[in-house]
Amino acid sequence: MPHVTYIEHNGTEHRIELEEGLSVMRGAVDNGVPGIDADCGGECACATCHVYVEEPWLAKTGTPDEQEASMLSFAATAQPNSRLSCQITMSAALDGLVVRLPEAQH
């Protein structure tokens, strides 16, 4: 199974196997990775599943659509490599993906 590495804001790493087709948000929430709240359950409607995508993966994870960009633009901790992890779907091409978590989700 492909895997994702989540790096908490304090540096703690979590290597999680994630079935293709599931979102990167699910991988964190279902495996108890702290730092992803996902209040809306994956509807791209709360921006509390915010992550930073590490440089080498940016192109492969794609770009946010309009709704995601709007939601992200309200996150105080947003950066150019910010994504909402509920909008990134796991695939073989993303095996090894590394995402970092922001200081806080709101």
């Binding site: 209040d39 359950g41 509807e43 709101h106």
Partner: peptide, 18 residues
């Protein structure tokens, strides 16, 4: 517990929720 509608969702989701 945060799966509720009290703060709304989407682009108008409450600024002050946290």
């Amino acid at each position: 517990p945060r799966q509720h509608l009290s703060f709304g969702f989407g682009v108008h989701r409450c600024v002050g929720n946290r």
